[in-house]
């Protein structure tokens, strides 16, 4: 069976050890979590975890079933199989040096990157997009000299109920 990336959305009770339980079990069973995003929902009692893992359908079904066994897990959906929208975000700091200054300015104008902070010595950009868009941006940012970068896990939203 074909291995591919699966985006799994998990609703959980916002308990102190719920993430440890999920991460521990998946790790213990040899499944890798490739990316992870967690925060509370509109209710503080309930959190949503969006994680991505790579595997064939059978493996991913096993992971989902494992997750459903947890007392604190409310709902598990594999968004790969339903229509959904995906986003990642990067925060990136570019150091402004005299030789790169014009290049950086041009790139920001061309790609319409959002400038969060600007000083004489650095610029901080916020870029969101789906995975190909982020990868595209990273390829353009690389030659400009990335001083520091943070990339979030994938967040995803399903488009059908």
């Amino acid at each position: 069976m074909e291995k591919k990336e699966h985006i799994i959305s998990i609703l959980v009770y916002n308990k102190p050890d719920v993430l440890a339980r999920i991460a521990g079990t998946l790790g213990g069973k040899g499944y890798n979590i490739e990316s992870l995003c967690v925060n509370t929902t509109t209710s503080y009692e309930i959190s949503k975890i969006v994680m991505t893992t790579v595997g064939n359908q059978a493996t991913v079904t096993r992971i989902e079933n494992q997750l459903r066994r947890f007392v604190d897990v409310i709902q598990v959906d594999d968004l790969t199989n339903i229509e959904s929208i995906h986003r990642e975000m990067i925060l990136v700091r570019l150091n402004i040096t005299s030789d790169k200054k014009d290049q950086i300015k041009k790139a920001i104008d061309t790609y319409k990157w959002k400038v969060l902070l600007l000083s004489d010595s650095y610029v901080v950009l916020e870029i969101t997009g789906d995975k190909p868009q982020i990868d595209f941006a990273l390829a353009r940012l690389e030659p400009l000299g990335i001083a520091d970068i943070t990339r979030t896990g994938i967040v995803a939203l399903q488009l059908e109920d």
């Binding site: 102190p16 050890d17 440890a20 521990g24 079990t25 213990g28 947890f70």
Partner: peptide, 13 residues
Amino acid sequence: TGITRPCTKHNFL
């Protein structure tokens, strides 16, 4: 609770 997390159905502190 950390030690027994993988070998309980559930645990509580």
